[in-house]
Every structure is written in C-alpha cells, then in structure tokens.
Design a protein around this nucleic acid. Structure first.
Length: 362
DNA sequence: TCTGGGGTCCTAGGACCC
DNA sequence: TCTGGGGTCCTAGGACCC
C-alpha cells in the first residue's frame, strides 16, 4: 500500500486562534475593541472563579489564563469582566473549523484534526500535488479564516505535529512561524523543558533532579534512565519530546468522548452534609444529559471532593452493569460519599461518568 | 492571595484467576 | 522449605492540556 501523504516528508500546520474567547466577545460588542477584557466565571470579579481568557490589553497588566478573578481585578481594576458563554464559543469554533475544513492544498481537500475550541492540526490530503512554500499556504489560510469569521489566528509550520504546535507560539499574534528538525536545537535547545508540550512543572522538577534542565539536555539524556525514573511509557516519550520527534499522524477521525463530568466550586463552602448529598445528585443529573446525548451508558461513576483547606480526594466504582438511569447513577455517586470525610467544609464537588467503550470502527 | 471546569492518559498496588 | 509467573480488572491518584 502506498500512502504518499504519510511516507513522504510532509508539512503539518497548527492553527491557533488569537485570544479566541476574548475575540469572540469583542466581535459582538465592538465597543470593547482595544479595551482590557477578561472573560471568566460568571463575570463577577468578586466571586470565586478564574480567568478563561484575557485580551492582549489585559495581559499587559499581568492578567493571564487560570488566574483567580479577584487577583485579575486587583491587577487591572479597569478591565471589563464578562461571564463565560459556552454556546457562543461553540458556534464561533464551528465556523472556524468549517472554514479550515473547506480549504484545499495541493489540489485536494486538507485533513483537519480538531484539538479544542480554538486549535487544530492540518495537513495536505492524500494524493496532493506540489505543496509549494508552506508559508504561502499559511498566509492564505489566515486570510480565509479572517474573511469568513472575522477572527485572527496564528499558524505554526512543522515537519510533525509537535514542532508545528510549538512553532505557533513564536508566531503569535497574527503570525506564521516554521520549526523543523534543522532548526529544532537552535530554537529550542537552551529553553527549559517546560517549553515542551506535555512537560509541566512537576515533570520539569523531576527532570531537574536528574540534572536535566534544558531541551537539549533532555535530548542528550539516557533514555533508559528516563524509563526507569519516569515510567516505561512516559520516559521514552519525554526523550522524544526533547528531540522534537513525534510520529503521530494528523488524524481527522472525529473525537469520541470517554467520559463526561460536572463539577462546581461553591461560592460558600458547604458545611451541611445533606446539602452535599443534594449537590452530588444534582451534578449527576447534569452529567447524565451529556452521556444521553452520546447514547452510551456509563460503566463507572466517580466523585471528587475538594475540602477547605485545599485538599482533594476522588473515589470511583464500576457499576454492576452499565446504566444511563439518573436515579441509579445518582445513588452510586452518593454511595461514594460514604468513603470520604464528612466533617470538614467542602468547597468543590464533582461527578464523573465514564462511558462504555465506543462501538468498534471498521 | 487564591487557586475553574472540561477533559485525557499513565502508574502503581491489590485482588483474583489459571 | 519455599512459596511461580502471567494476565486482567479495579481503584486511587498524579500530571498535563485547553
């Protein structure tokens, strides 16, 4: 079998919308253009909640994603705070992905792998002709997305998904950047391991304990030591990350969810255990809506409890048989509460329903 | 100072079976 | 006296990403 699109050296593009959530809000409220805009929680910076996205104007004040709204308000008191509007972002995302999916490159439709609301990988489809300079196509792509959605994006070009993904950040905002095997160490070699997609603070600290602080040191490290210290799967994967190696193809197969959950941080900690039980039932009913939409029953049920002071536990069980009956699932979730402490304040509750395996694709 | 909500995948240990 | 070895399932927890 010949597969020219995967066997030949080929380009991968990573498309990332610029300040997506804030940009969608500014589109429907043009008077906000140029102002510091912070989207998060219910839009009230005196409440518990965190920043989903800040506009570039707000970022200049040191406001960033994941930051508590109260801190954001302190750093940028004049910012406009808006609530998260999931439906609006779903709709805008669908428009963007449709615009990307409609593109042709090398005379054939592109292959698009959607990563989330505002991100996708893209490659030329099988049987394509000469692709030319990928930077030309990237600029064409940016123009098409802007024309059809009025949203700006940045594009990373790589010889695999990992390098394309990392390249995008260097191009932001409204830019194109290329990162390949030839330039990998020149661009990334001296950077900390956290610059890699998949290495966070905890892993970086473990690596530092092994004398590995930079991407180049990771690439030159002993893969056997990594496997012994970090696991037989993770160790070799981190070693590949250091070298910029990523054999995974751009895969347009629609994503099939494995689980759905609901969780909520309460504005006031819950002290009354009967209230905790009620909330767990309520969260379960809300999660059932999602598994019903999938049409697949739940095989496992899990709960998460975060206490004050900050301390989280999770419990889970496998159901005797899969179910989508809200009463059965709520009873199961409530039964898990017997396995946690009940005499300290609860600040967050979560319920998670894991679905049975999806039907096998041919 | 205060740490969301939606997910994914990996690891490790114990139970259990043959 | 010493007590296999491989495999799967279950559960709890860790880490990461957007």
């Amino acid at each position: 079998m010949s597969e020219p699109s995967t066997s030949a050296p080929s380009w991968v593009l990573h498309v990332d919308l610029d300040q997506f959530i804030a940009a969608v809000e500014v589109l429907r409220r043009p008077e906000l253009a140029g102002l510091p805009v912070v989207v998060g929680g219910r839009g009230d910076p005196t409440e518990r909640g965190v920043v989903a996205t800040a506009s570039y104007e707000a970022r200049a004040f040191g406001v960033g994603s994941g930051m508590p709204l109260r801190i954001a308000a302190r750093r940028c008191p004049e910012a406009v705070f808006l609530p998260v509007d999931k439906e609006a972002y779903d709709a805008a995302s669908a428009e963007v992905m449709a615009a990307l999916r409609a593109l042709e490159w090398g005379g054939v439709p592109v292959v698009l792998e959607v990563l989330g609301w505002d991100e996708a990988f893209l490659a030329a489809g099988p049987g394509h002709h000469d692709l030319g300079d990928p930077r030309d196509f990237a600029e064409h792509l940016r123009g098409e997305v802007l024309a059809q959605t009025r949203l700006h994006c940045s594009v990373g070009i790589g010889d695999n998904k990992l390098r394309a993904k990392i390249a995008t950040d260097f191009g932001k905002p409204r830019g194109v950047w290329q990162l390949t095997e030839d330039t990998w160490f020149e661009v990334m070699g001296e950077r900390p391991t956290t610059a890699l997609w998949g290495i966070g603070a905890k892993t970086a600290k473990k690596l530092a304990g092994l004398g590995i602080d930079t991407v180049e040191q990771l690439a030159r490290s002993d893969a056997r030591v990594l496997a012994a210290e970090l696991g037989p799967t993770m160790g070799p994967w981190f070693h590949r990350l250091g070298r910029g190696v990523d054999p995974s193809p751009v895969d347009a197969t629609p994503w099939v969810p494995r689980a759905h959950g609901r969780e909520e941080t309460y504005q006031e900690d819950l002290e009354d255990w009967t209230r905790v039980v009620e909330e767990v039932r309520s969260l379960t009913r809300r999660a059932v809506v999602d598994i019903d939409r999938e049409g697949r029953p739940a095989a496992r049920v899990g709960i998460k409890v975060r206490y004050r002071p900050f301390f989280t536990v999770s419990r889970s069980l496998t159901l005797p048989e899969p179910s989508n009956d809200p009463a059965v699932l709520a009873d199961a979730a409530v039964s898990l509460l017997d396995r946690v402490e009940r005499d300290r304040p609860v600040r967050l509750l979560g319920v998670r329903l894991e679905m049975v395996d999806p039907p096998r694709q041919p």
